[in-house]
């Protein structure tokens, strides 16, 4: 193998709290790009703002650590300028399902060839523990101290299925090996891949802990789920959190490799990647003639 595992690591040590679920996501991502032997200079990891969004600094690829909620459109811009790059987005639940949810939906319906890892800890970590769009009903947080959350949590899996994502998976920081496999599958998939990573915040979320998940998760593949069946995927998706909280499905909900990607349909790409095109106008007279 050309690239060692360490090649993908940067010199910067993660600043996360010991035990933070995000370590597992970092490890899985590193494992996946290593397994695929991606050239680090052809990978761009885009993030927003949050504990989880610090991730790009810890790898040796290109990165863009953008503003809160806008990682997805930054990634889309990068992809549209240079479709030859491997573009990934990493960030938190607040970043992607809260402030950035509009961009998230539109990126999925466009089916960009982008892989999106959301470190879903059901809390705002970096801002020290307020409710997030995936916090459970009733959960007491700094911003919901009296009666707890009174809003329904967003279900990213159903949202992704409904919005046109063509690779939809959920994984858990307690199982790096499976997570790495799902991430690898997402990167290989041509089209938009959403990977919702249940990634416990050990500091601010005392409800959705490693143990909470260990007691509840089950593997979709082992129960014979067929990821090409969208109806079945919806049925599994609404199991949690929409209808109950005792069994949480993990694994690949849905995959459809046949849908054309946004990049496939973009007319400007017929000339090749925009970043490689010559600048300027060769025949300005032709352009000006239109105004005569």
């Amino acid at each position: 193998m050309e690239f060692e595992m360490d090649t993908y690591k940067s010199e910067i040590k993660p600043t996360w709290c010991p035990g933070c679920g995000d370590f597992a996501v970092l490890r899985s991502l590193q494992t996946a790009v290593h397994a695929l032997q991606l050239e680090p200079w052809n990978v761009v990891i885009v993030s927003g703002i949050g504990c989880s969004s610090n991730l790009p600094h810890f790898l040796s690829t290109y990165g863009f650590h953008s503003i809160h909620g806008r990682a997805v459109p930054i990634a889309e811009g990068i992809k549209l300028a240079n479709p030859e790059l491997n573009v990934l987005v990493t960030g938190g639940d607040g970043d992607g399902y809260g402030i950035g949810v509009g961009h998230f939906i539109h990126a999925m319906r466009r089916n960009f060839d982008i892989t999106y890892l959301v470190m879903n800890n059901q809390i705002y970590g970096l801002t020290t523990g307020q409710a997030s769009p995936t916090s459970e009903m009733g959960m007491k947080t700094k911003s919901t101290p009296i009666e707890g959350v009174i809003e329904n949590p967003i279900d990213p899996i159903s949202l992704a299925l409904a919005s046109g994502a063509t690779y939809v998976a959920r994984c858990f920081s307690g199982d790096v090996k499976t997570m790495a496999e799902l991430v690898k599958g997402g990167i290989q998939h041509k089209g938009f891949a959403l990977i919702d990573c249940l990634s416990p915040c050990v500091t601010y979320n005392k409800i959705n802990t490693y143990d909470f998940f260990r007691e509840r998760v089950y593997d979709l593949a082992k129960e014979g789920h067929d990821p090409s069946d969208m109806k079945a995927a919806f049925a599994r998706a609404i199991e949690w959190p929409a209808t109950q909280r005792d069994r949480i499905p993990l694994g690949l909900f849905y995959r459809n490799p046949k849908v054309p990607t946004y990049e496939d349909l973009e007319i400007a790409f017929r000339k090749g990647p925009p970043v490689k095109q010559p600048l300027g106008v060769e025949n300005p007279d032709e352009l000006m003639a239109e105004f005569l």
Binding site: V44, E76, G77
Partner: peptide, 9 residues
């Protein structure tokens, strides 16, 4: 934001 991404790329 897309313009920023494209400029970066």
């Amino acid at each position: 934001n897309m313009t920023v991404g494209a400029g970066f790329a």
